[in-house]
Design a binder for these strands. Structure first.
Lengths: 206, 206
DNA sequence: GCAGGATGCGAGTAATTACTCACAATAGTG
DNA sequence: CACTATTGTGAGTAATTACTCGCATCCTGC
């Protein structure tokens, strides 16, 4: 996971339809392999094998191993943002608790999808500057959005909105990641209820 | 990070004082190297070099690389438990908030000590069965202890003590890990205050 | 001071793995 | 069909790295 000088080399971009298909096959295979073996043991040869293409083809689409993970992370983040947007647009709840429930559930659903892969992404983030940057930006956006939400909602009573927004995002993210890391010893929906309750009470009783 | 058959091979145990010293040197060096390079790039040769011993000597004390990390994790967990005990025995606070403040601060202090190393430990945990087991046990103990605390404290009003204990441990652990992973963009003590407030309110207004 | 055990050494080995390159197969175009 | 650009192939390479082993050095008890 070091800086790579392969990045600069020009990669041809797909002209035929099968090229795009191969790209997708590689990503899907990589997701499986990384989830099963972790990043270090998830070798590029294994990925190619699983995708049923040759190792040479793989390197025609991705200049190095890091880039594959980077694309997986990007897609995961994009999917998360989209999911949040959908949750918000679906219904217009007025109570703060309903909003928080939507948020919490959305985050949980995103992460329970493929816990192992998510674990790998979290692991490798600190070792790739590109990933660090992307994650940091994503978090800033989350906090900013939450801040706006809190600021505009009449039920919210906290002294410092910035800190509160940060805490909410950290709490939900942190707990869900804990949940993902360890095999869940407690019912997910049950924990969701309590988490929503905790956050809501915190926000309304400042 | 696979199963290793070296583990069974007998390792001599120290007779002379310098042996124990070397052991300690290895551990200290390993902590630095893992923190700086991560686990995969933190090679045993680098550790030996930093400890100013030969690679051969290193393998006289630890049968393989995994074992070194395992010992570091063990010591960290033990230190954490000890720190918690001290916090509890130091003063006898009666308010729930004071207890929670002590707990949160203890966890934060433990983790802010060497964030990078902690990151590596968290990363590797899922890849070593021994570590998984140890961590799981540690968490069970934490939850059990918290459960007892909540059960015996008159201020606590929650419907399900088990879930509440789980949530508190997850929340504190999760948020602190988030805090450690990302460069903290918000003041630590400030976040601590709010975290304590959140948890306390949750517990007292069930 | 010496015998024997404990500790230290480090060049070398076997295995792994990211990545290359010379070439083959295939698809679009006139 | 021929011709060219695009896509696919996989044996091979260079680098890395966990770990070994035969030997040197040191310490301790007698």
């Amino acid at each position: 996971m070091a800086a790579d000088r392969h990045s600069l080399r020009a990669r041809k971009q797909p002209r035929q339809a099968r090229a795009e298909l191969t790209r997708q096959r590689i990503l899907t295979a990589a997701a499986h392999v990384f989830a099963e073996h972790g990043y270090a043991a998830g070798t590029t040869n294994r990925i190619a094998e699983r995708a049923r293409i040759s190792i040479g083809s793989l390197y025609q689409y991705y200049p190095n191993k890091d880039t594959i993970l980077l694309e997986l992370v990007t897609r995961h983040l994009d999917a998360g943002v989209l999911s949040l947007k959908e949750h918000r647009d679906g219904d217009r709840p007025d109570s703060l608790e309903a909003i928080m429930r939507g948020y919490v559930r959305s985050v949980i659903d995103n992460h329970l999808d493929d816990p192992k892969l998510l674990q790998v992404m979290m692991e490798q983030t600190p070792h790739a500057p590109e990933l660090v940057e992307r994650m940091a930006r994503h978090e800033r956006e989350q906090v900013a959005h939450t801040r706006e939400l809190l600021a505009s909602h009449p039920e919210v009573r906290v002294t410092d909105i910035d800190v509160a927004a940060h805490l909410v995002v950290s709490a939900v993210g942190g707990i869900v990641h804990q949940l993902v890391a360890a095999p869940r010893s407690v019912d997910v929906r049950r924990l969701e209820d309590e988490l929503v309750a905790m956050v809501t009470r915190y926000l309304t009783l400042g």
